[in-house]
Amino acid sequence: MEIILESTITCPHCGHQKEETMPTDACQYFYECENCHQLLKPKAGDCCVYCSYGSVKCPPVQNDPNKGCC
């Protein structure tokens, strides 16, 4: 299974979208929207901002959805 590293984050506050490259060696817990400058944090039960607000889940979750992340 090929791991996808590009994910589009959508800000829940203003709807701004930006394609980002996900790190493969760590979870990204914080993300600042470049449009409204809100600091995004993962939703309860998610390990990172990509799992909460991204179009693609983070690499560890893609690799093994049952294991979880980080």
Score class of each variant (00 low, 15 high):
13 H>S: 13
17 Q>C: 12
26 A>T: 06
15 G>C: 09
54 G>N: 00
26 A>I: 12
52 S>W: 04
18 K>T: 05
39 L>C: 11
9 I>H: 00
18 K>P: 07
57 K>D: 14
9 I>V: 14
68 G>R: 09
21 T>F: 12
49 V>Y: 03
57 K>L: 13
5 L>W: 15
15 G>R: 12
40 L>V: 10
52 S>L: 07
2 E>R: 13
69 C>G: 14
9 I>D: 02
57 K>H: 06
4 I>C: 01
25 D>T: 13
12 P>S: 05
54 G>A: 09
27 C>I: 09
38 Q>H: 15
66 N>I: 04
67 K>Y: 11
24 T>A: 05
57 K>V: 15
7 S>Q: 01
46 D>N: 15
4 I>P: 00
39 L>N: 13
7 S>K: 11
7 S>L: 02
61 V>P: 05
68 G>E: 10
34 E>F: 13
37 H>C: 14
23 P>V: 02
33 C>M: 11
10 T>C: 06
2 E>L: 04
27 C>N: 03
47 C>R: 03
70 C>Q: 05
5 L>C: 14
51 C>A: 08
65 P>R: 04
34 E>D: 15
31 Y>E: 06
25 D>S: 12
24 T>V: 10
13 H>T: 02
1 M>V: 07
15 G>N: 06
62 Q>A: 01
54 G>D: 05
61 V>F: 02
20 E>Q: 07
1 M>Y: 12
63 N>H: 14
19 E>N: 06
8 T>Y: 12
22 M>E: 03
46 D>R: 03
33 C>F: 04
35 N>F: 04
26 A>P: 00
31 Y>N: 07
19 E>Q: 03
34 E>P: 13
39 L>H: 10
6 E>G: 14
7 S>A: 09
10 T>D: 11
53 Y>N: 07
69 C>R: 03
38 Q>M: 09
58 C>S: 14
6 E>N: 15
6 E>T: 14
5 L>E: 14
18 K>S: 03
66 N>W: 03
11 C>W: 03
15 G>V: 02
40 L>R: 04
12 P>H: 02
38 Q>V: 12
50 Y>H: 04
34 E>R: 11
66 N>Q: 10
64 D>H: 00
4 I>R: 08
44 A>S: 13
23 P>N: 05
48 C>N: 08
12 P>R: 09
7 S>P: 09
60 P>T: 01
56 V>L: 09
60 P>K: 01
10 T>M: 13
22 M>W: 04
36 C>S: 15
26 A>N: 02
55 S>K: 00
19 E>L: 07
70 C>I: 02
54 G>C: 02
66 N>H: 06
44 A>V: 10
6 E>C: 05
15 G>H: 08
58 C>K: 11
41 K>G: 14
33 C>R: 13
28 Q>P: 00
29 Y>H: 06
8 T>G: 12
15 G>S: 00
57 K>C: 09
35 N>T: 07
69 C>E: 11
34 E>C: 08
59 P>D: 02
21 T>P: 04
24 T>Q: 10
18 K>V: 07
62 Q>K: 07
66 N>M: 07
64 D>F: 07
51 C>L: 04
14 C>E: 03
61 V>C: 09
